[in-house]
Simulated scan of single mutants.
Amino acid sequence: MSVDPVALAVEIGHRVKAARTDRGWTLDQLAAAAEVSRRMVVNIEQGATNPSIGTLLRLSESLGVALAELVEPPRTGDVTVTRAGDGTLLWRGEHGGTARLVANTTTPDALELWEWTLEPGDQHESDAHIACTRELLMVLSGELTIVLDEQSTVLHAGDAITFNGDVSHVYANRGTASATFSMTVFDPERANAGRGSVDSSEASLG
């Protein structure tokens, strides 16, 4: 069953606010730690906006929680099955590409499995993740260009790549046909992963 984007935005907002409260942070503190505006944090917590992957990653890393803890439906048992097409849609490209989070584990380390489709001309630019993040990617069809610190690597169906995710990187389809790939992201244990260590006395109450 596909996820209603409005309902997903509301649920993300509740989870961000709960994680912020658990950490004892104000709105200003989270905004500073995640390097986003206070207004953006307010809008997200109110469910008034669908944040980008980049913003969600900044929030999850700052709060010391896995991305999946903010966006995935609650688990109901030890086995979770995601049917084809039912992953959480977290990105849509200008030319019709999509990125879905289809499976994950969250403790003690975060491990995410993604399903991507890039149409010709689509690209996604990703900021550097937290230290020690690793990405493993395999192209299923088409041609995919990976740019790591301005160095490009072209991959075709059956090719795979592993790289450190703590540098800026780009996934791009510069070919003439759709490109599909699966990607696994490993984030190390997040007990001390929050970017910010802002003194609560430095910001106004949220």
Rank of each mutant, 00 (worst) to 15 (best):
H124G: 00
I130T: 12
A172E: 07
R75E: 12
A48E: 10
A128M: 03
V102F: 04
V81L: 15
V16L: 06
T26H: 13
S37D: 04
V71S: 04
V3T: 14
E11K: 08
E135I: 10
A31D: 10
V154Q: 12
E125N: 07
T133E: 14
T117Q: 14
A32Y: 06
S200G: 01
F163M: 05
L56T: 02
L63H: 06
M138N: 04
E69K: 12
S62H: 04
T184H: 05
R38G: 02
I12L: 00
M183A: 14
L90A: 04
R83K: 15
R83E: 15
V6E: 10
A99L: 13
S126G: 00
V65C: 08
R38L: 15
D166W: 14
L30Y: 09
G85D: 09
T106W: 01
R174G: 07
A128T: 03
T153E: 11
E125G: 01
E143S: 15
L113T: 08
T105V: 13
N104H: 15
V6L: 06
G175C: 04
D109F: 15
V167W: 01
G121T: 11
R20M: 07
T153P: 00
G93Y: 06
A191R: 13
T26E: 08
T117C: 08
T21C: 00
A19L: 05
R100P: 05
T26P: 08
R92D: 03
F186R: 14
E112I: 02
G85R: 10
T153Q: 13
F163P: 03
I161N: 02
E69L: 08
G165K: 05
P120L: 12
A179H: 00
A32M: 11
E69H: 05
A66T: 15
E72G: 00
C132S: 13
T49D: 00
T184G: 12
D78E: 15
S201N: 09
E94W: 01
G194F: 06
G24H: 05
I53V: 15
L113F: 11
A68H: 03
T153Y: 13
S126E: 05
L63F: 05
G13Q: 02
G196I: 04
Q123H: 14
V79C: 04
A68Q: 06
R134D: 08
F181L: 03
V185E: 01
L56P: 01
R83P: 01
H124R: 11
D199S: 14
S37G: 15
L56K: 02
T180R: 15
I53E: 03
C132N: 13
A128F: 03
A103S: 13
W91M: 08
N192R: 12
R174T: 13
T49S: 12
A157W: 02
N192A: 14
R195H: 15
E119I: 00
S201A: 12
V3D: 10
T184Q: 13
S60I: 02
F163S: 05
